[in-house]
Design a protein around this nucleic acid. Structure first.
Lengths: 207, 207
DNA sequence: AGTGTATTGTGACTTTGGTTACAGACTGCC
DNA sequence: GGCAGTCTGTAACCAAAGTCACAATACACT
């Protein structure tokens, strides 16, 4: 699928410019697209696949913030790119992923030149800000069982499948918990009929 | 102090417009400036005082996100105002506070008309986004003792005084913890010589 | 089929932080 | 001074989640 279809809300002249100046890059599942401390010189738009944005502390612990889908942009890359600052997050390809990199130079020009770009950037900020609020809600007010449930639901929504192909260990890392805790909670949820456990995958039965 | 001095980075013509169209409102210490679910029709700039931005869950528990100082704008109000949506946060005056309300109608126009406004809005997004990342870091990776320490430091930095005039109860609420836990941890910190406890105030000895 | 590795299941234990209950101390006010 | 209300200190207990240790299972590969 091409840029026009993914970003239909952008005006034609802008899409033209994006096609001319944007650099297309592809990443394989598991590839790190951006890592903590790296200098950001481009804004990233997702064309295909799925990207995980997470926070990592000094000891290597990870904490999932949100997923980016095709048609979305990485708010952090916009923020950092506009200041040429280092990012404080990690972006990982969850599937084979194609992105469009827009050199920061165009940000300013397009912002005043194309109303649709301005709205797109604002909407990106708004939606990511709200996602962060939900993340904070979860981690501040909810227990691990609720957070796990939320995580599974979000994962099925993002991948449009009720099968979550992850090991307990991987889930534990994204929630900054430990494998045993996740296994325990998943087992309880299975006993309550909420899901079915398989090796390397979880089948969600409720929606 | 007037708008010119608080927002010296904005170009004169814009400041003129701000003075013409902005509505000045004052709030007493403790007043709620914005509450969850409320419709936002204006962007808020802080002129005097200090504003606390926090997240509140359904049961009334609170969770501090950050403080806003004079010269800063409320990112959430910008986001919500530009979409005329409801906010998911609460803003409370921590001191007697003066704010400037800018009706949303001007956002779009100024954004393309005044480069300095565009930069100001981007910078507001950037800094608040980064504050949220720090908040997530704290709550995801740190224990309560570290979070409390961080809280106290941030408070002294914001109020430019090493005296924190809050009861243990108030601190507990902002960290979504309980009074006993905070008392316990503060006592420990006092024994380690990090601070001195008084009634209704804490004197921070380390920086 | 047999071996090695990754994944999952589970029990015992520890730590952190929340809860309950109550005592003492300070402040304001009559 | 005496009383009410708020704030602080503390002990005992509980619950959630992290840790440790080890068993059991499944899969991949030869």
């Amino acid at each position: 699928m091409n840029t026009q279809d993914r970003f239909a809300q952008l005006e034609p002249a802008l899409l033209e410019e994006i096609n001319t100046h944007g650099i297309i890059k592809t990443f394989a599942m598991g590839d790190v697209i951006m890592r903590t401390g790296q200098y950001i010189k481009s804004t990233v738009l997702i064309l295909e696949g799925m990207v995980k944005i997470s926070r990592n502390d000094d000891e290597g612990s990870e904490f999932l913030m949100y997923y980016l889908q095709p048609g979305e942009a990485c708010a952090i890359s916009i923020i950092c790119a506009s200041k040429a600052e280092t990012s404080q997050i990690t972006a990982t390809a969850m599937e084979d992923t194609t992105v469009l990199m827009i050199p920061i130079g165009f940000m300013d020009t397009w912002m005043s030149k194309y109303k649709s770009w301005y709205y797109f950037v604002l909407e990106t900020y708004r939606s990511r800000f709200e996602e962060l609020l939900v993340v904070i809600d979860n981690v501040a007010f909810r227990n691990m069982d609720e957070r796990l449930q939320f995580y599974l639901k979000r994962h099925t929504a993002a991948s449009q499948s009720n099968i979550i192909a992850l090991s307990h260990q991987q889930i534990a890392e994204e929630l900054n918990s430990s494998r045993e805790v996740i296994s325990r909670l998943l087992k309880k949820m299975e006993q309550r009929g909420m899901l079915k456990l398989h090796r390397n995958s979880i089948e969600l039965l409720i929606s």
